[in-house]
Amino acid sequence: MDPWTMHIAEVGVFDANAAALDVQTVDLMEAAGQALASETARIAESLEGAEHREIWVLCGPGNNGGDGFAASIAIKEMGHPVRIIATHVIQKGEAAEHHRNRCRDAGIKIDVWPLVSEESKPRMIVDSLLGSGTYGGKPRGDVAAVMQWINPHLDIVPVVACDIPTGFDSDLMISATSTVTFHSEKMGMRFEDGSIHPAIGRLCVAPLPWPKEVLDCGPGDALRYPPLDLDARKGDRGRLLVIGGGPYHGAPILSGDAAARCGCDLVHIAMPKDARNRVEWPPHLIPESIPDEVTLTMSSVEHLIGRILSGRGVQAIVIGPGLGRGEETIRAVVRLLYIAAEGGIPVVVDADAIAGLPKGSWPDKLRGIVTPHSREAEEWIGPEIA
């Protein structure tokens, strides 16, 4: 699997997809711990003196803490003295608690905050307090207390961070000498010029024992969508306008079905009359009549602008499925994309509507995404980039 720069939220998506494929979290934790231990040992063996001092592993309550417990076993097996400072009495997940019990069985010292010894000093620190699930949030409670307690040591000894430094991108953060992140780099670890954020230190990307199918659409991808609010009323989850159809009528209906199944409240489908009349309309989709009869042209643009901007308007647009690529149709697409951009309405530009995008670039102000297949991508941005 070729890695890419992941959004932090994708970590949870892939974890859930892996679980659905019967990949055990305990095994992923073991692999993460081994990678974390290897980098820790590499740095420890480069240090001069104080071999008797312990490597302190800071473990939070979640899976990041579980990685730290798994790493502690490996660090001990590599011949280094280890001490664990845990923020909580037990771990939140079974896999993390399993590795915590392994540490206990191996005789590794586990201090639970606030009952920690003040007598010794660390040789180095492993930060497994909080992981990617807390990115951008300021640490609180016992985790924040441990961070403040450990702070006097941070400028004196090396720190290895597990996945991301705790508190990364907040005003309470542990800066790392080295960060071991998993599968691929995460957004925010580099600046726009490609340089690594100073809080990351040396960046190490460690693979995880995932099958390639983890990257396919699976149950975990449901986490990408906002959860349903049990107290929501009709209209609270937005109104979508799908603009498509003409030569074909099935693709706009499939797009509307997908939106409705994901929780969108009101889904309007705008198609020319001929396509609209070929549809057996399901009750959860709303036909949006437009003046055009065969294909979308500029004749329907003013009507659609009214639908987009009047009253409660729409909160998102899908444009392109089954639309066709006639010259008048593409002119209408260009105009509608401009209106969406000016109105700040997010758009999914799909299928034939991709031909309405400027060659090799994205329209000014337009919020949204484009969903090309390989040929459409080549036509838009060129074969070298696609």
Rank of each mutant, 00 (worst) to 15 (best):
D111Q: 09
E118Y: 00
H98L: 04
P139M: 03
A353S: 00
S310L: 14
M271F: 10
T179D: 10
T329Q: 10
V205M: 10
G343E: 10
P291S: 09
F14Y: 09
N151K: 12
I286Q: 05
F69S: 07
A20W: 01
H99N: 03
Q148C: 12
F14V: 11
D127H: 11
Q34L: 15
A71Y: 04
D221Y: 02
G360T: 09
A16K: 11
L296E: 09
T25F: 10
G246I: 06
G313T: 03
V314P: 06
T87D: 00
D171P: 14
F168H: 05
A96P: 08
E77G: 12
R190Y: 11
I369A: 15
A37T: 11
C162L: 06
D2R: 13
P226K: 04
A341H: 03
N101G: 08
R375E: 14
G49P: 06
V180K: 13
P3V: 04
R261G: 02
T329F: 09
P165V: 11
S175K: 04
P291W: 01
H373T: 15
K186F: 01
S120W: 03
L323T: 03
L115Q: 13
S299V: 12
I317W: 10
D111C: 04
T181S: 08
E77F: 14
L129C: 09
I385Q: 13
R140C: 03
I317K: 00
S310A: 15
Y248T: 07
G220P: 09
G136F: 11
T181G: 10
A316R: 02
L58N: 07
V112A: 12
I385E: 15
G344I: 05
V146K: 01
P372C: 01
V143F: 04
A74D: 10
H99A: 02
L129P: 03
I330N: 05
S178I: 05
R123Y: 00
H52C: 02
V143N: 06
T371E: 06
A355D: 14
I90K: 00
L266P: 14
D105K: 01
G326S: 03
I84K: 07
A176Y: 08
A86T: 05
Y225M: 04
G313Y: 05
G218N: 05
G244M: 06
V205Q: 01
L266R: 08
G131N: 13
C103A: 07
P152E: 00
G79E: 14
R367V: 15
I125T: 07
L223E: 02
C264T: 15
R325N: 02
V57K: 01
P321S: 12
R276I: 06
F69A: 07
Y338W: 15
L254W: 02
E97Y: 11
D236S: 13
V82T: 01
S178L: 07
R123P: 02
G65S: 03
L115I: 03
L240A: 12
P122V: 05
H80L: 08
D127P: 13
R335G: 09
R367S: 04
V242C: 10
G322K: 04
P283T: 13
D111K: 06
P139H: 05
F14W: 13
A144E: 13
V89C: 12
G65T: 07
M124N: 02
P3T: 05
G66R: 10
P114Y: 10
G244N: 01
L129D: 13
M78E: 02
F14N: 02
C262M: 14
P287V: 11
E54S: 07
K212W: 12
